[in-house]
C-alpha cells in the first residue's frame, strides 16, 4: 500500500517549503494549502482566517463539484476554479498528474491573472516533487 501524501514526511516537508516560498513571492497571498483529492491537509500556511483541515475538506468538495459540472457540460476536465469575493479570491487547481490540489486565497491587491499564474507555477513545481 502506498503512503498517502499527508502521511509522507518528505512530501509534507516539500509542500510546506513551497508554500513558504510562494508567500515570499506574493504579498497578496493570504492563505494557501496543498490537500489530497479526498480532503486531507498535506501542508498549509499558518492562518487565522480558517481552520486548515476543515478548509481542506471544503476545497476537495469544491474540486469534485467543479469536475462534476465540467463532466456534465462535456467541456473536458476542469483546469482551475476561482471564487471571487468582495475582499479577495480563491484560486484552486490540481497538482498536474497527481491526486493533490493547491488552493490559495489572495487579497484584492493582486490581479486574478497574476494570482492564477503564481498558483499554476507552484502546483507544477509540486508535480516535480511528487511526480506526475
Amino acid at each position: 500500500m502506498t503512503t498517502s501524501p499527508q502521511n509522507d514526511p518528505a512530501v509534507v516537508e516539500a509542500a510546506s517549503a513551497l508554500l513558504t516560498e510562494m508567500k515570499g513571492v506574493s504579498v497578496s497571498l493570504v492563505y494557501a494549502a496543498f490537500l489530497t483529492d479526498d480532503g486531507f491537509d498535506v501542508a498549509r500556511l499558518p492562518s487565522r482566517v480558517t481552520d486548515g483541515p476543515r478548509f481542506a475538506s471544503m476545497a476537495s468538495s469544491m474540486q469534485a463539484l467543479s469536475d462534476a459540472v465540467a463532466h456534465e457540460l462535456r467541456i473536458g476536465g476542469s483546469e482551475y476554479l476561482i471564487i471571487s469575493s468582495l475582499n479577495g479570491y480563491v484560486i484552486q487547481l490540481r497538482v498536474p498528474g497527481s491526486l493533490m490540489v493547491l488552493s490559495a486565497l489572495f487579497d484584492n491587491d493582486a490581479t486574478v491573472g497574476a494570482a492564477l499564474a503564481l498558483t499554476r507555477t507552484y502546483a507544477a513545481r509540486m508535480t516535480g516533487i511528487v511526480g506526475g
Partner: peptide, 23 residues
C-alpha cells in the same frame, strides 16, 4: 447519478479505491 468521487487516501480505514467528497 452525479458523483463526486475522489481517490481514497484512508485505505487503512475502509479499503475501497474512491470515496464521495461532496455529494
Amino acid at each position: 447519478v452525479v458523483s463526486t468521487e475522489a481517490n481514497n487516501s484512508e485505505r487503512d480505514v475502509v479499503d475501497k479505491p474512491t470515496t464521495t467528497v461532496a455529494l
